[in-house]
Simulated assay, not measured.
Amino acid sequence: MPDALGTAVTNTNPDSNLVVQSRRLGKPWKISQHGITFIAGWEAFMPHIYDNDGAGKGGNATVGYGHLVHMGPISGAAPEVPFRNGITIAQARELLLLDLEYPERIVNKNIRVPLYQFEYDALVCFVYNLPSGNAGLLNLVNSGHYDRVPAKFLEYTMAGGVRPRGLIKRRRSEGSLFKDGNYDHSH
């Protein structure tokens, strides 16, 4: 499927000019500062390594704003060494910016319709939190049914076999951001 703003097919006279305008933006997209703050608010700064699986029952060694140190619980493994004494907010933000490159690539690669900045930021937040298994939501966005996307976020609320309240709140907030541009990340 071609990019939405890159190609237009019409049944008009081929010699005529057609101007297509949209307030939504075409590629390439880049996360905004508001989007970064939104994600950081949901991830919450943790200066020391902790185990996290999304349900609070152990899981993967993590630090900062959800930066994955390694799969599996804290074990004293080599990847943990740089974080043993903790990190600063500035270091955590640098890690977050690096970590956001992957979800941005996923959204830029897979979305083929124009987006508002806040819609893009919501999708990057979602993919940051769920880097795989997100095709259903991204496919719905590509269908152009923007109005149905906020409800679709709520289909992704399972973590470790349960529906944590925090994850439900996050998905509602991502849906609100996608729909209305509301960057509220309060819990």
Rank of each mutant, 00 (worst) to 15 (best):
A61V: 07
A61E: 01
A61G: 02
A61T: 08
A61D: 04
V63C: 03
V63D: 05
V63H: 01
V63M: 07
G64W: 13
G64M: 13
Y65D: 01
Y65A: 02
Y65R: 07
G66H: 11
G66N: 10
H67F: 12
H67I: 08
L68H: 03
L68W: 02
V69C: 02
H70R: 10
H70N: 05
H70K: 12
H70Q: 05
M71S: 11
M71W: 14
M71E: 03
M71D: 00
G72C: 01
G72K: 04
G72Q: 07
I74A: 11
S75R: 14
S75F: 07
G76F: 07
G76Y: 07
A77N: 12
A78E: 14
A78W: 10
A78Q: 15
P79E: 03
P79W: 04
E80I: 10
E80N: 08
E80V: 11
V81E: 13
V81H: 12
P82F: 04
P82M: 03
P82V: 05
F83M: 12
F83L: 10
R84L: 14
N85V: 03
N85M: 04
G86S: 10
T88E: 00
T88D: 01
I89Y: 06
A90E: 14
A90N: 08
Q91Y: 01
Q91K: 03
Q91F: 02
A92F: 08
A92G: 15
A92R: 05
R93I: 09
E94W: 01
L95I: 06
L95F: 13
L95E: 04
L95C: 03
L96R: 07
L96H: 06
L96I: 10
L96S: 03
L96K: 04
L97T: 06
L97S: 04
L97N: 12
L97C: 04
L98S: 14
L98P: 00
L98A: 14
D99H: 05
D99R: 09
D99P: 01
L100P: 00
L100Y: 04
E101H: 03
E101G: 01
E101L: 09
E101S: 05
Y102C: 00
Y102A: 11
Y102M: 09
Y102F: 13
E104I: 15
R105Q: 10
R105N: 09
R105I: 06
R105F: 06
I106D: 09
I106G: 08
V107G: 11
N110H: 06
N110P: 00
I111R: 02
I111W: 00
I111F: 01
I111P: 01
I111V: 15
R112A: 10
R112K: 15
V113Q: 03
P114V: 15
L115T: 06
L115H: 03
Y116F: 15
Q117S: 12
Q117E: 13
Q117D: 05
